[in-house]
Simulated scan of single mutants.
Amino acid sequence: MKTKYWLVKSEPFKYSWEKFNEDGRTFWDGVRNYQARNNLKEMREGDLVLFYHSNEGKNVVGIAKVVKEFYQDPTTDDTNWVVVDLVPFESLKNPVTLEQIKAEESLKDISLVRQGRLSVMPLKAAEFDKILQMGS
């Protein structure tokens, strides 16, 4: 199965990259948007995920890896909502800002630019690689 690429957003004051690295593993909860939920359901073990700080910072700060595919969100009884388990994989040498992403022609169609409120989104391999290149 081919690796897929994703981007997830978290407000640093709620759950930061630093806290994620301290924890070493987390389930990605709190998703209450059907499109974002459907994206979680598409994630497979081994997929790579860019970790984006939203609201404060507004930048991609690291790469996570999916280690457990979707299951019922343990923070709610509503069976509509799911989580996946992620582990931190690597920090970017230089965080990539939303401004840099918006200024990059090859990234103009990514959901981060087009659907600003979406919290879990797919990326094409070339888009993922471009953001990594920008952060190295």
Rank of each mutant, 00 (worst) to 15 (best):
A36Q: 04
D73K: 05
A64K: 02
G116K: 10
L112Q: 02
D29C: 03
V120G: 02
I131K: 00
G135K: 01
S54R: 00
P88Q: 00
R114M: 12
E42A: 15
E45Y: 12
E104C: 11
I110Y: 02
L40A: 02
N59D: 14
M121S: 15
D129E: 15
N33R: 09
K58W: 06
D73R: 00
N80L: 10
G46P: 04
K65M: 15
Q100M: 11
E69A: 13
L86V: 04
P95G: 06
L118Y: 00
K93Y: 09
K93H: 13
G116M: 13
Y34H: 15
V60T: 05
T76Y: 06
K124R: 13
Q35H: 13
P95Y: 08
N59A: 15
N80V: 09
L86S: 02
S54T: 01
F70M: 10
D129I: 10
D78G: 08
S111P: 00
V113E: 08
A36F: 01
S119P: 00
V84R: 04
L112H: 03
S111F: 14
K108W: 11
K93N: 12
N59H: 15
N33G: 08
Y52D: 06
R44E: 12
E127T: 03
T76W: 04
D47I: 06
F128L: 04
K108L: 10
G135E: 02
S111L: 09
V83Q: 07
P122S: 15
A125V: 10
M121F: 00
H53M: 06
F70L: 02
R44P: 00
D85F: 05
F51A: 08
V49K: 00
E56I: 15
V31I: 12
A36R: 01
D77H: 11
W81A: 02
L86N: 05
P74Y: 07
S119Q: 01
K58M: 14
K93W: 00
Q35A: 15
L118I: 12
V67Q: 09
L132T: 12
D29H: 15
K108M: 12
L118C: 07
G30V: 02
L112E: 03
D77Y: 09
Q35E: 13
Y34K: 14
E127S: 08
E69F: 09
K102W: 07
L112S: 08
R117K: 13
V83K: 01
N38S: 10
K108N: 14
E90T: 11
Y34M: 12
S119D: 03
D73I: 03
P122H: 10
D47A: 07
